[in-house]
């Protein structure tokens, strides 16, 4: 079987996979990083979103071998090394942006990407950016609110740093 190597959350990993092994399968079953979830098989729900070389992608819609040599960040790699929540994670907790938690890793990864690309998104821009992430619990209201709050906090952090 082919060998795949990549850097996941800063750690070099490798393993044997089949051609048909999806990245999400490699993460969940090969590396036991079970924070990345699978909610559909048509690449629509977004529970499996991770970052590959800095871009958010659906890890159920890319083969593990296609990520050979890549830098991968999963939800397990978002909090600080000391376990402290990132600004986005903390905002989701403060604003009750999650209920059952299943879509949450994908939402956090997506929100993190959004704020990197667009530090001060409007409500409409947030809602459009979440198009590929389905949540059945929250009705999105508090997810949007959490992202707005995170944007504001990151913005004031930036101002403070300058």
């Amino acid at each position: 079987m082919p060998q795949v190597s990549m850097t996941v959350n800063g750690r070099k990993v490798s393993g044997e996979v089949e051609g048909r092994t999806l990245l999400v399968e490699f993460l969940r079953e090969g590396l036991r990083l079970t924070g990345t979830h699978v909610g559909c098989d048509t690449a629509q729900c977004g529970a499996c979103v991770v970052h590959v070389n800095g871009n958010s992608i659906k890890s159920c819609n890319i083969f593990a071998l296609e990520a050979d040599g890549a830098e991968v960040t999963t939800i397990e790699g978002i909090a600080g090394k000391d376990g402290s929540l990132s600004v986005v994670q903390a905002a989701f907790q403060t604003h009750h942006g999650l209920q059952c938690g299943y879509c949450t890793p994908g939402m956090v990864m997506t929100a993190t990407s959004l704020l990197k690309e667009n530090p001060a998104p409007s409500e409409a821009e947030i809602r459009e950016y979440l198009e590929g992430n389905i949540c059945r619990c929250t009705g999105y209201h508090n997810i949007v609110k959490a992202i707005q709050a995170a944007a504001a906090e990151l913005g004031s952090n930036r101002v403070a740093a300058e």
Partner: peptide
């Protein structure tokens, strides 16, 4: 097209 993740791939 699609969503941000799809557009990245």
């Amino acid at each position: 097209i699609g969503d941000p993740h799809v557009r990245n791939r």
